[in-house]
Design a protein around this nucleic acid. Sequence first.
DNA 1: GGAATAGTGTCTTTAAGACAGTATTCC
DNA 2: GGAATACTGTCTTAAAGACACTATTCC
Lengths: 232, 232
Amino acid sequence: MLCVVYSPSDFPPFAVTVDLVVLTVRADALCALLVRRGEAPFRGRWALPGGFVQVTESVDAAAARELVEETGVSGLHLEQLGTYGEPRRDPRMRVVSVAYLALAPDLPVPVAGTDAAAASWVPVAEVSSLAFDHSVILGDGVERARAKLEYTSLGTEFCPAEFTVAELRRVYEVVWGVSLDARNFHRKVTGVEGLLEATGRSTSRDGGRPAALYRRGAASVLHPPLVRGVGA
Amino acid sequence: MLCVVYSPSDFPPFAVTVDLVVLTVRADALCALLVRRGEAPFRGRWALPGGFVQVTESVDAAAARELVEETGVSGLHLEQLGTYGEPRRDPRMRVVSVAYLALAPDLPVPVAGTDAAAASWVPVAEVSSLAFDHSVILGDGVERARAKLEYTSLGTEFCPAEFTVAELRRVYEVVWGVSLDARNFHRKVTGVEGLLEATGRSTSRDGGRPAALYRRGAASVLHPPLVRGVGA
DNA sequence: GGAATAGTGTCTTTAAGACAGTATTCC
DNA sequence: GGAATACTGTCTTAAAGACACTATTCC
């Protein structure tokens, strides 16, 4: 029904929060940024970072603000994941949470929040029962990331500003949990127009023959996609 | 920052609404269900159907309730589209709206809401400047529908319970605004495992040789996808 | 030279794009 | 029979999957 008259009973007050699923690849594992709760409810449990949306800011702006506060880095990829609005998801009051997915390269170390809660990168495979419905949100975020690697250039968001093809391949292997044929992967990603931009320089940080360094290109969509199950 | 203490200033009151992008294919056009507003602001302007989320129901449940109220039909495909939370999107107060995308077959006639507002199917190509930020939401919904036709079985949600391959092809052509090669399309959709389920019956409602009637199959994902640009 | 990693080339297979041709209905 | 639509088959081309081979570094 279209509500055409506003009266107090029409808009019961809700609190609106943002929750962040911040993912990175470090030590050959897909990791999420988690904070340990210092207060009830769920005191001592891991939770997604997040916070209340202020009246003067947009929901998207609140997410961007929280992301900078938590990581200490700006310019990371950030996109809306979904909104979670079960009546009893917070035991104290009615809270609707807008979840966001952010991708980060291997950052030096998590920045502690302005409050005392400790933050840490936790491999998603080792995460168990987060506070509130955050396990569901994290699962949705991981699945979104896995799916978008197929048809977008999102994988490069896990890499530093300059990276090798092998580093990008490692991202795909870790996020998807598969092993890919290095040669076919190389042909594929160097063949997609606008995905990688050669820097002209190279690095031998991986031991063998020096690998060419690339930057993210302008392309954001992969046509055709890089389907899960490429190579071995 | 992780808010560990709740105080009144932490959760300024928001109103939470759901808005519905309900799409259908009728008369060879992609149409959206719109309502005409009977009250200020935007009085007389077209808007998306929607309403307030009640304290006792989940956000998803509110969307499902509104969808049944507006269409008179249950069981339609419904998925979250995104959340729109600019501070001034509603001129009167702070409203955060969770938008949903619903797909419907060609329904007999829109059911008028419980209030006086008139509802109507409007071709999306003819929609101009809706109330609030609803034009943006509608655009996002249409784009989501177009994208998901590629890699999911969503196209069949626009069709009645039993439909022919030509009817499904017409859905793709209208939603994408392209013309597809009937023969390649037939090969593709009948070849995808689990997409279509033969009924054994046929219909000659289209003039020529009777066409086989199919039901939606169990498959929800198209592997490999049906890429935009198939055929001519 | 040997180990390790980077990068190229080639063959096979899958599936899309184009389009000829046959089948079954209504008039 | 003719028009219309449904369906099948064939040829060509693009791109994935598998894998041999060469290139450049460090030890």
